[in-house]
Every structure is written in structure tokens, then in C-alpha cells.
Amino acid sequence: MQQWLPLLGVPVMVLGFALRLNALLVVLIAGALTGWANGLDFDALLQLFGQKFLAARQLAAFVLVLPVIGLLEHYGLKTRIRELVVRRRAATAARILMLYFLLRDLTGIFGMPQAAGQVQTVRPLLAPMVEAAAEARHGELPAPVRELLRAHAAACDNIAIFFSEDIFIAFGAVLLIDAFLKDSGIAGITPLQIGLWGIPSALCALAVHFVRLARLDAAIERQVREHRAAPAVGP
């Protein structure tokens, strides 16, 4: 029984997220229960919370980019992006996502993952472009389709960067694997070899996601048509 106590926080998280309780509150309860079950007193727990929270401050780095996004959107960035995209008839939502996927792969392979990202490029540029392209083709988009496209923009960035940055030999993952090998006394493997073994996974990620994206434009068209055909339903 004792050995399962450290896992107490996991079912709490699953239950809390499933019940759609406030995420911060769920995290606090899961942390408090885990700490308490493992013999931390209140003061030690409070200090542990504070220490780890301070140590994770770099995760709020995206705050530094929000003001300029707010400014540009105030002046009509989305309108201008729409005008740009609408003029290009070949630009469909899926094709824009595919192109972005390839560019994002390149930033990973060359070790520059920070050059793009959820706040840097997805929110201000990619999501409005994808939405505008779909709108130009299919007319006014129903809310669920809009949500789907925005989520696809975010997903595209994540999937492309996760599986491509391992190929770059100085990326954290390769260094972590290298350090693990040295700790375990396994010699004769260079970071370059580790990086090369990241290539099959990166190619598979590209293939799988492109197959899905290739069917996206048709799926949007179907959803828009179904939405128009369906009679308006109350809330």
C-alpha cells in the first residue's frame, strides 16, 4: 500500500479535470494530498510550493509577447492578414498548415525552436491565416469549425517541433540521452548517432499528420454544409 501513496495526486488530477473543476484548484489539492501522503508537514509543503513555483517562472515568458499582439490586433492585424490570404486562391487551410509544418520542422532541425511557437507565430499569424483561408473558400464559418481550425493551428506547431528538434545534436533531449548513456557506463555512442535515430520518428510524424491534414479541407466543407442544412436549434 505504502508504495502507491506517491501516485495519489494522479487520480485527483484525472477526477478534477474530468469534472471540469478549476484547474489551479485541482493542482493545489493534488499537490497538497501528494505532499501530505508522503509525510510533508504544512510548512514544508508551503515552502516546496513556493520554491518550485519560483523555479518555474520562465514558463511565463510568453507574457512578454502579449502586449505587441494586443497592439497589432487593436489596429486590425487580423483584417490585414485576411486580405492577404483571400487574394491567394491556392491557399487552403490544410495547405497553409502543411507549409507551416515543414517550416517548423526546419526550425527544429537547425536547432532554433524558439524562432516560432504558440505565442510567437500561431496566435498572431498562423491561426488568422488558416481561418481566413477557410472563410474565403467556404463562406461564414460556424463556431465549431472556427474552433477546430484554431486548434489545428496549435496542434501543427506542437507536433512539428516535438519530433523535429531531436534531430539537432545540441538540443536538450539529445544531451539528456547522452548524459544518461554516460551515467549508465555505455560508451561509444556520439550525439550525432542519437540525433540520426530521431529521423525515422520525425518522418513518421510528418507522414501521419499530412495524411490527416490532406483530409481537413474536405472535412471543413462537409461540416459547413451540414451546419447550413441543420435547422437552428435553441441552446
Partner: peptide, 13 residues
Amino acid sequence: QMLAMLGGVFIAA
């Protein structure tokens, strides 16, 4: 940040 904190508690436990 809250989740990174929870990860830290998990490690401590």
C-alpha cells in the same frame, strides 16, 4: 507554472 510546481512535488514524493 502551477503544473511545473506539481511536477516538483511529484519528484519530491
